[in-house]
Structure formats: C-alpha cells, structure tokens
C-alpha cells in the first residue's frame, strides 16, 4: 500500500519540490539584498553595522553546529583574536581596511586550526568544554600580551578608506562596506553548506560510525569545518573591530561565546537565515534595553528559556516547519 503511493508520488514530486525550494531561496536572497540596501534609511546605520557583524558571527557558528553537530563554546576566541589582529594591523602597521580584514581573518583561521586539532576528536560536552578552556587561554593572552592593552583594549583604530577612496568615517559608506563583507561571507557559507564537502558533512552528522565504515577519515572533515567556521567568525570579528574602532576584552570573553549560541538557537539552528534573525533580535534587545534600566541579561535569559520551551526550532526553524518546508 504505502509502497505504491510512494512509487506513484516520489519520482514526480521530489524534483519539483527541490527546484521550488531553490526558487524560494533565490526569492529570499532578493528580498534580503533589497532589505540590506534600504535598511540604513529606516534604522541607525551604526546599529545595523553591529547587527550585521553579529549576524555574520552567528552564521559562522551555525556553520559548525548546524552542519557537524559540534557545539563550540569558544567561538569568541576567533571573533576577538581576529579583532585584535585586524585592529593592530590597521593602527600600528597602517594597513588599509581590506588588508586589515585579511590579516584578522587569517589569524582566526590559524587559531582555529590549533583549536580544531586539539578538539575535533571529542564530542558533545567534552568538545564544548575543550573549546571553552582553549578560549579562556586566548582571553588570558589578551589580558597579558602587550599589544592588546589589557583592560583598556585596543582603541582609536583608524577605519581608513575602502579601495583607498571611500571614507569609512561616513556612516553610510561604513554601512554599505559592512553589508558587502557580510554578503560575501554569507554567500561563501551558503556555498560551503551546499558543496561536495558539505554533503559529506551532512553524512557525518547523520551517522558518524557509518561514514567511518565507508572509509572516510571523519576527523579531517570535522577539522576542515572547524577551521572554516573559525575563519568566518574571524571575518566578523575583524569587521567589527574596524567598524567600531575598538577591541576590548568582552570580545574574547566567554559570555560572547554564549551570546552567539543564543543568537543561533533563537533564530533557528541549521537554517539559512536563522542566525541572521537571531542576531538581529538579540542585538536589538540589547540596544533598546540598554536605556530602559532593566537587567538586560535577565530579560534575555528569560526570553531564551521561553524560546526553548515554546518553539525549540527557533524563529526561522518554526516558520519553515509551519509551512511544511523540511
């Protein structure tokens, strides 16, 4: 019975569904780019820059957790370390905006390789604890090394000019430059998820022993995913450092690792746009609550608990589920 119905429907509907899904993604991309272009006319650009930096950060985190099932509790290390290096490159070495971003991102990749090498053979809680411990080491270094300026942080970082011509001190230029960086990172991560490599990651996440039994060295694939995720977190951290002209200890603090987990879960783990939505919600709340006199962390914590209890798939995940996609 059930076999007959499947025979009748699956070959016909499945490819149709797939192309409909792709069209829908294109539509979302179109809407997203339109929103990116229009947003600074409705919201304060600096606020949007912050949202975009954290959205990119959350997407990078989601790349690891969503595609590999590895929950890192140390992503602030990549975000912050990249920020310090990019800031230092721009301020002390006098490198232009683009080169500073490249330096910061490369530094995050290197730190990621080191962290990943130590941690990817572990899973679950052990993995989370190892990444947290390693991130605490980075925090300690940020506190002690001379070029990070400890509690004072690295401040008065010059923003410079995009392509040597457009002055980033103009907040609209700053916003659009950040939007371009965000878009590049976002598209790159979307491609990684849908690459030949990404396909194997899905298999490893679904059933690791089976992937091993088919002859795959799963640790190498996880290491690669870890480094890619760290690199993208570094791109976010570098951009934030230049845009806000400051890198402080909070950028490498464990609470930043925690807040990126919150953003991803709130928005929808493993979804394309979930981390972006989650970051927008969390950053907005932090911004609006900052003037209200309410205890911010308590309010965000309460919302997080409600989210876990009421809609576990996160905002975007829940919407997709309601409309029957995936």
């Amino acid at each position: 019975m059930s076999q007959e119905t499947l025979q009748a429907t699956s070959p016909v509907t499945a490819p149709g569904l797939k192309s409909a899904g792709r069209d829908l993604t294109l539509v979302w991309y179109g809407l997203g780019i339109a929103a990116l272009l229009a947003a600074p006319f409705f919201f304060y650009p600096i606020f949007l820059v912050k949202v975009l930096c954290f959205a990119l950060f959350a997407c990078a985190f989601n790349l690891l957790l969503g595609s590999c099932g590895l929950l890192s509790f140390g992503h602030a290390a990549f975000f912050g370390a990249a920020g310090y290096v990019a800031g230092h490159a721009a301020k002390e070495w006098g490198l232009p905006f683009e080169a500073a971003l490249v330096c910061g991102t490369a530094a995050a990749a290197a730190v990621g390789l080191l962290f990943g090498y130590v941690s990817v053979r572990r899973q679950g809680l052990q993995f989370a604890m190892i990444t947290l411990a390693l991130a605490q080491l980075v925090y300690f270094l940020a506190l002690q090394l001379p070029f990070t300026h400890a509690e004072d942080g690295l401040s008065a970082i010059p923003r410079g000019k995009v392509l040597g011509t457009f002055d980033l001190d103009n907040i609209f230029v700053l916003y659009y430059a950040t939007a371009v960086v965000f878009l590049i990172g976002f598209v790159a991560m979307h491609r990684m998820t849908n690459s030949t490599f990404g396909q194997l990651l899905k298999a490893i996440r679904d059933n690791e022993p089976r992937a091993i039994s088919l002859g795959y060295e799963v640790h190498r694939y996880k290491l690669m995913a870890f480094v890619l995720s760290a690199t993208m977190a570094g791109l976010a951290g570098s951009t934030k450092a230049i845009a806000f002209k400051i890198v402080a200890l909070t950028d490498v603090h464990w609470s930043t690792s925690g807040s990126v987990i919150l953003m991803t879960l709130l928005g929808g783990l493993g979804t394309l746009f979930g981390p972006v939505v989650g970051a927008a919600v969390v950053v907005s709340m932090e911004d609006y609550l900052a003037d209200s006199g309410l205890p911010i962390n308590a309010v965000i914590g309460a919302i997080f608990i409600l989210c876990i209890l009421l809609f576990r798939r996160g905002i975007v995940g829940e919407i997709q589920h309601r409309f029957g996609k995936r």
């Binding site: 491609r191 990684m192 849908n194 690459s195 030949t196 490599f197 990404g198 396909q199 194997l200 298999a203 992937a211 088919l214 002859g215 795959y216 190498r220 694939y221 690669m224 890619l228």
Partner: peptide, 22 residues
C-alpha cells in the same frame, strides 16, 4: 548511495565546489 560513491572522487574537501557536480 552517492555518499559512498563520492569516496572515489578527489573533491571531498572542495568546500567551494557546488554539490551539483555530484
């Protein structure tokens, strides 16, 4: 089944290559 067949391809780590080639 394609996951198994993919093992004979050199692009297992090609994170830039669209999975459409599969």
């Amino acid at each position: 089944v394609k996951i198994a067949l993919q093992r004979f391809r050199p692009d297992g780590f090609a994170f830039w290559k669209s999975s459409k080639v599969l």
